[in-house]
Design a protein around this nucleic acid. Sequence first.
DNA 1: ACCTATCCTTACTATGTCGATAGGGATTTA
DNA 2: TAAATCCCTATCGACATAGTAAGGATAGGT
Lengths: 141, 141
Amino acid sequence: MKISTKGRYGLTIMIDLAKNYGDGQSPTSLKSIAKNNDLSEHYLEQLIAPLRNAGLVRSIRGAYGGYILGREPGQITSGDVIRVLEGPISPVEGIEDEEPVKRQLWIRIRDAVKGVLDNTTIEDLANYKDEGEQDSYMFYI
Amino acid sequence: MKISTKGRYGLTIMIDLAKNYGDGQSPTSLKSIAKNNDLSEHYLEQLIAPLRNAGLVRSIRGAYGGYILGREPGQITSGDVIRVLEGPISPVEGIEDEEPVKRQLWIRIRDAVKGVLDNTTIEDLANYKDEGEQDSYMFYI
DNA sequence: ACCTATCCTTACTATGTCGATAGGGATTTA
DNA sequence: TAAATCCCTATCGACATAGTAAGGATAGGT
């Protein structure tokens, strides 16, 4: 029941691109994103390929190339990113094959997660300001 | 982002035990549960061991033995079962290590899933009656 | 006392995914 | 034409999943 580094690094990429969005649209290189976040550039290349295929980012090749967001940060949700990199948002494979008793449980979970992911845009994440201590009590399981 | 067969079969076991709960407390054999649900008895043995260690089921050894729920079905949540078999409910490993921007997203997802799992008891699941067509439109991703 | 049903434990295996690393090719700007 | 960048395919070690295999321990029924 975990989101892997694919989805997590994918969000990292998208948030970085969102922060650079708009200032003359000069592309951001993967190298700088990798360095910024202390990640393997080579690994990020594999993650950004599906994001490009899905139209979530556009690429500019050649020297001084890089990536820019495919549309406004407010028009891309974290659900868009997670779905591309992790597959459908669902707590089980083949939810429709489950018997009704458990199916309704999986559907409730799925809809709860969708509710969060589809209502949080990349813009929301890029603009997030840490409000301080409001989450210090949050680490119960 | 999936719940594996461990958690799913674990719920299946608990629901079966809940259905037999109360009628003289005669234990239910794993064999019958396995047959009922067309699962490998041997595999279920491995899943029920942690459930027993956690006190969610009690075992009676010997001929005519089997398992009974460790407490009333209404006092056991699906979250109890999932946590025992799948580990902590959290969309990422080490949520507290994530930077605040993404951490708040993971926390929202975690709390949404917890809300469902911790408020659905085994009794709820065992008593579920299929209401018919109310979920025929539910298979969008 | 013995047989058998059941629980209990450990070991093994096949398959797939994760999280990269390796090595190079294609394209564009200066 | 050199350098920066995107692009593509292959490979790899570690780990988890979903079992199978083999047998031991316990207790009820006869």
